[in-house]
Design a protein around this nucleic acid. Structure first.
Lengths: 230, 230
DNA sequence: CCAAAAGTGTTTCCGATACACCCATGA
DNA sequence: TCATGGGTGTATCGGAAACACTTTTGG
């Protein structure tokens, strides 16, 4: 069932740069390519935009779910790549999205068809297919820029987290150390974190208090002109 | 000469949101559609991505030149729009770019095939075709956000400009008044403006000093870790 | 001489930064 | 009892914001 057009058309694909955070490390999900081109190299989950996808973002989420089983992740459009030669099979325009997931959730997920999917520490990424190295670099820059002005860091942490975990996340993403007292002062003054009664468990030292990000309150404050900033 | 593919493909287009600044007003260039769909409504300059375009940005610049005669403008990718139904003729993915031009330069340009092109004050934009109203809104937000952290405002002014002109530009884009003394202090302390001997001419009051943006110096400072901020 | 915009400093305030010790817990 | 991270307050500094009058020029 071929499709015919008067003028040539590039293929349109989506790519998902999926970030996670665990063990004090920022991670990215990659899938090893089973076939040429770039067989054996690693690439982001992604695929073709289907005519049935109502939006491009829908396509990105669909692909992500197909390849990893993950649903309802934070996702934003990153950039669209379409240089000649980026795909040896033919002209391809790829709309890239980056997504943030709570790795704690992800570990509960199972049974996707992506047996070749692996999380890599951001500092230990293997050789990538296509122009994905460039895309990853751009995604990291975007994350670094965005995390300071929007409360998206919480998407990478479990529902309940300690202030130290939050601080380490910021230190990792921003690639610079932060002062503990100043960080706590600033983040708590925003009134966006609900302190819980519950304490951290299973650690060989004093247990830390757990907090929860209060999204509702954030929306409330934002509509009153509040600006998140770390 | 038809082109055939195994799976259906969306059309890929580019759109250019072209901003100018004159007479204390932010302006956008629109072209009146000569044919359906949306005949008579206004739209951004744009067109199809050609297989001969080495990059998508090249396509955007090519279209802009074809429709307005303008070359060598500041241009950045804005966002990619691809919702079903945004073009009644069929599934279309549009990569939108926004561009900034010195209107003083533009007035020197002539003889494009865009007799239907007009500059509209941003507060007096007519009904737009497709989803272009949404695109314009997004472009304005991006401009507003970007102008504070990157010295792109100068792209909208003539080579030589007064501090008042610069301030009015910022006030217009940011939609808020700025304090004259504080603004001058801040912008001059950056050492990015070369004061010229030349003074403003043809005004019925005290002539203001002209300045020039020192791009070379900006690159220099940026590489040393300097961050532009208004 | 008047209208219109150019040009110019100081004070106040608040948020950013720097900085070090005691506490609680499990091993 | 010790190793490990949790948790806390203050002083200083620098940039942001507020604020008004004199000067220059052409009409």
């Amino acid at each position: 069932m071929p499709y015919t057009y008067e003028y040539p058309r590039p293929a349109v694909t989506v790519d998902c740069i999926l970030f996670g955070f665990d063990d004090g490390e920022l991670k990215v999900l990659l899938i090893q390519r089973a076939s040429d081109p770039f067989k054996g190299l690693w690439a982001f989950p992604g695929g073709f935009l289907d005519m049935e996808d109502p939006t491009i973002e829908f396509a990105a989420k669909r692909e992500l779910e197909e390849e990893t089983g993950l649903k309802e992740v934070f996702m934003e459009q990153l950039y669209t790549f379409g240089d000649v030669g980026r795909d040896p099979r033919g002209r391809t325009v790829s709309v890239a999205y980056y997504a943030l997931v709570k790795l704690s959730d992800y570990l509960l997920q199972a049974g996707s068809d992506a047996d070749q999917a692996h999380w890599f520490n951001i500092s230990q990424v293997p050789a990538l297919a296509f122009d994905h190295a460039k895309i990853l670099q751009m995604a990291l820059e975007r994350l670094k820029g965005k995390v300071r002005y929007q409360p998206i860091g919480f998407e990478l942490l479990p529902q309940k987290f300690t202030l130290s975990e939050l601080q380490h996340l910021y230190e990792t993403v921003l690639e610079k150390p932060l002062d503990k007292r100043n960080f706590r002062k600033k983040i708590l003054k925003m009134n966006l974190l609900k302190p819980l009664e519950e304490m951290q468990a299973g650690v060989a030292h004093r247990a830390a208090r757990l907090y929860q990000f209060d999204k509702q309150r954030y929306e409330e404050l934002k509509s009153r002109g509040f600006n998140f900033e770390i």
